[in-house]
Structure formats: structure tokens, C-alpha cells
Amino acid sequence: MANSKKPGGLREMLESMYSVIALLFILVACVELCDAAAAVDVYRLIQYDMSGSPFGSRFAALNHHAASLHFPPGVDLSRTVLIIPLRELNITFVREYINQKNPLGGLLVLLPEVLSFKTGGNKQVHEKEKMKNLLAELERLLVHSNIPYPVYFAFENDEIDTVLADIKKNDLMGQPATATTGGYKFVIPTAEPKKVASPTMTNIQGWLSGLKTDGDANQLPTIAIVASYDTFGASPALSVGSDSNGSGIVALLEIARLFSLLYSNPKTRGRYNLLFGLTSGGPYNYNGTQKWLRSFDQRLRESIDYAICLNSIGSWDNELWIHVSKPPENAYIKQIFEVSW
């Protein structure tokens, strides 16, 4: 999914959030008896709680007939899965539908293949950027809404395009799919997600010792270089996180590599200890970082003279953000902060 800014606050994660295996989405053509079936991979919208408030899609199982955007006015969609290709998506319509709490059996958003992991190179660059911007806007809407029905994403292909064409034709003819008339029925037979009471947080730490002179009894100051290694998006299985936070991880590993070469020689070893940390739980109020800091010896915490957090440094806007205390305590950092503004 497109990257999104990480909302703060305590989040309670659910088992479904980190699933990297797409659910099986079954399309059944029901004409009298089911005479055809096909399966495609789908990716569920994230579900989480923040400070006790629910967000994302609150349900997972589906067993409803399908409809396109050409449904008749005033029709009851409470037992219908609405299929919307991203190319045809009207963000205002989706926002109003969610805000007005209109009933819906489920929502399937079809992503163009140009956004697929399999698509590479500079193919259709303009279209890809347009779709990414629209997807980012949709993502912001979905992850900050409480949606009382299943929401899934799937990539377009010839098979699902054929199914959607049939559904559109029937809807335009005033023959929507029902239990009596037949039509396409979408089924996801999965258990509802369960809350994870205590998620596992795994942090990775590296250390380079600085050079102490003979007779120096004082502990050397420490510079901490930290990056969060996980990501956040509308669908966890699609959140590749090249900028949030793949860019920070790459920068940290390269810095560690260069300084390990310098610190291997006493002549080029600095008088600072270097602490490197890859922390988890960044999108969830930096829970992994908090756990990591609490595990430190008090002397180590007190020795940290400077900390650098490398998060989302490959921003699309080509900007770097500085997070400082209010007011900035370090005079040098205060100067950088004032110049940046």
C-alpha cells in the first residue's frame, strides 16, 4: 500500500494484522446451482484499536452477492459486496458512504496491475503516480475510520475483470445478483480476528566501543543511531514500506558498516561509543523502542549524549524532519532547528 503517516497513541494489535498470506477469495457464479468457481488472492484492511477506539475493518468473513457501482438508487446493500476498481473510485462517494454509516455487506477495491509487486521498470509511470496518489488518499480515509463490514483489496487480472464485466452488465440491465436470480457470490470462510493481548517485540542492537585514553576513568559518551524496521499501511500484507521505514534501515546499516571500518583501527576510532538499534512497533506508539530503552542499564541511558532517529528519510517531498524537545535543550540542535525553519 501507499505509505501513510504513523498515527500515535497506544494500539492493540490483532492476529489478522500481520498476516502475509492472502486470504482465498472465491467467486461463485450461481445460476440455479453453482456452475463455476474461481479463486483470487485478497488482502484484508487493517484492524486496530487506538486508546480504546476501534479503527479499520472490524469483520473478516464474507458470504454475499456482488454488485458494481451501477447499482440502482435506493437499493439495500446490507448483504452485498460492492466491487470498486481503483481507476473508477470516487473518493467523495466512499467518504460519504462511510461517514453516513450506510449499510454494506462488504467492499472489494481492485488495484491496477501497475501497482503490483510484479510490475517493474518505468512502465506507465504517469498512471502509476496518479493511482498511488489516489490510493494514498483512500488509505488515509480507511485507516482512520471504524468500518463495520469486511474490506479487502485485490489486484486486477483477466479473470476478475471478466467477472466484473458480467456484474456490471447485469446491474445495468436492472438484474442485480440475489439468492433467487443467481449471479456472482463472494465467499471468504475465515474466522473473525482475535485481539493479541501481548504482541512480541523484537529489537536488534549493535555496539561499537569508542577509544578511551590511558588513565581516563570516566565513561565515554554514547551516540545512538536508531531506526524502526516495520511499517504501517491500510493492508499489512501490502505494506512494503520502502520509505517507512526501508530508507531508514538502509541508512543505518550503511552508517554501521562505515563506522565499523573506522573503529577497527585505533587511529581512526572516535571518543564516542556508537549504539545502533533496529526497533519494532514503530507505528504502534514506538512500543518496541520503549521496551528497548527500558532494557538499558541506567549508566548506559545516562551516557547517551546524542540520538539520531532515521525514519522515512527517503520522503517523496525530499524533506527531512527534525524532532526536538520543546524547547530544544541542546544549543547546537536548537540552531539547526531554527535554520531549518
Rank of each mutant, 00 (worst) to 15 (best):
D216Q: 15
I188Y: 01
K212I: 08
S209T: 15
W207Q: 03
A217H: 13
V187E: 04
D214K: 15
I223M: 12
T200D: 13
I204G: 04
L208K: 01
T202E: 11
K195I: 10
S209E: 15
N203R: 06
Q219E: 15
I188N: 03
S198E: 08
L211K: 13
L208M: 06
S198A: 09
K212A: 15
D216W: 09
T190V: 12
G206Q: 05
T190C: 05
T200Q: 13
D216P: 03
L220S: 02
K194Y: 07
T190D: 08
A191N: 10
A224Y: 01
P199M: 09
P221L: 09
F186M: 14
I188Q: 01
T202F: 07
K195T: 09
N218M: 10
P199V: 06
A197H: 07
F186Q: 02
W207M: 12
L220V: 11
T222E: 01
L208T: 08
Q205V: 14
M201T: 06
M201N: 05
G215F: 06
T222G: 04
F186C: 10
G210R: 01
T202C: 05
A224N: 04
D216G: 08
T200P: 00
A224R: 09
L211I: 05
A191H: 05
I188R: 00
T200N: 12
T213C: 07
